[in-house]
Amino acid sequence: MMNAIIWPDAYLPGFTENFASNEVIVAGLAAADIWPLLSTPSRWPTYYANSANVRIHDDKGPELADGVQFYFETFGFPVEAQCNEFVPPTAGAAGRVAWHGWAGEPGMDDRLDVHHAWLVEDLDQGRVRILTQETQKGKPAAALRVARPNPMVNGHQDWLDGLVAAAREAQARQ
């Protein structure tokens, strides 16, 4: 059985203004190939064009860890974020990374709060599964929910596709 995202109660899908889910399963890569590209935010802009100006606060990093605060820009939003789940993949156990991200001031109409979670797990026959899901709260999230084509689903698919391509390129250089 494949693993699932662990949700904070306040961000349970179905009870927020927006939810996006994307997944790929590919052969020839392992969680160990994917993890360094995902767990190091400064690498995101190298394979995901919708990510920019990444900064990790408080002289932490370059890799995320529980409690690490960071900043990046995506979907036109300046996002402050705090990593609240960080479990690297090991033999027989999925890797998990998640963060609470926010843009705008609390109580304002432009406030957006998200929980963005990733799961990276090795499957049998030399395959890896990468699942990314995000729940969003606030008026901007409600607007994103009805936008067509869906910018969150399409953007996160671009992130997954770029992540897989970057892992394949790194593998080919070894």
Rank of each mutant, 00 (worst) to 15 (best):
M1S: 15
M1W: 10
M2V: 15
N3L: 12
I5N: 04
I6P: 01
I6Q: 13
W7R: 01
P8H: 05
P8Y: 10
P8F: 10
D9G: 03
D9Y: 03
Y11T: 02
L12N: 10
P13Y: 04
F15Y: 13
F15N: 12
T16P: 01
F19Y: 15
A20C: 11
S21M: 04
E23Q: 15
V24P: 00
I25S: 11
V26E: 10
V26F: 03
G28H: 08
L29C: 05
L29M: 11
A30D: 07
A30P: 02
A30I: 01
A31G: 04
A31S: 11
A32Y: 00
D33T: 00
D33G: 06
L38T: 08
L38M: 04
S39N: 09
T40Y: 00
P41N: 07
P41F: 06
S42T: 14
S42F: 09
R43C: 01
P45L: 05
P45D: 03
T46W: 11
Y48I: 02
Y48R: 03
A52C: 04
N53Q: 13
V54A: 07
R55C: 10
R55A: 15
I56K: 00
H57V: 08
D58L: 06
D59C: 12
G61R: 01
G61A: 07
A65T: 10
A65C: 05
A65L: 10
A65H: 09
V68N: 08
F70A: 03
F70G: 04
E73M: 08
E73S: 13
T74D: 01
T74W: 00
T74P: 01
F75T: 04
F75A: 02
F77K: 07
P78H: 13
P78T: 07
V79R: 02
E80W: 09
E80A: 15
E80Q: 15
A81V: 07
Q82W: 02
C83N: 10
E85R: 14
E85L: 12
V87S: 14
V87H: 11
P88C: 08
P88E: 07
P89L: 08
A93R: 15
A94Q: 01
A94F: 06
A94G: 12
V97L: 14
V97C: 11
A98K: 03
A98L: 04
H100W: 04
E105K: 13
P106N: 01
M108N: 14
D109L: 12
L112G: 06
L112T: 03
L112M: 12
D113P: 03
V114Q: 03
V114H: 00
H116G: 05
H116Y: 06
W118C: 07
L119C: 09
D124Q: 13
Q125G: 07
Q125V: 10
G126R: 09
G126Y: 13
G126T: 09
R127Q: 15
I130F: 08
E134G: 03
E134F: 04
E134L: 02
E134T: 05
T135A: 09
Q136Y: 05
K137Q: 09
P140C: 02
A141I: 03
A142L: 14
A142C: 11
R145N: 11
V146H: 08
R148Q: 14
P149E: 04
N150P: 00
P151L: 00
P151H: 07
M152K: 03
M152I: 06
M152P: 00
V153T: 14
V153S: 11
D158L: 12
D158A: 14
D158Y: 08
W159A: 11
D161T: 13
L163Y: 00
V164S: 05
A165T: 08
A165C: 01
A167T: 00
A172C: 00
Q174E: 10
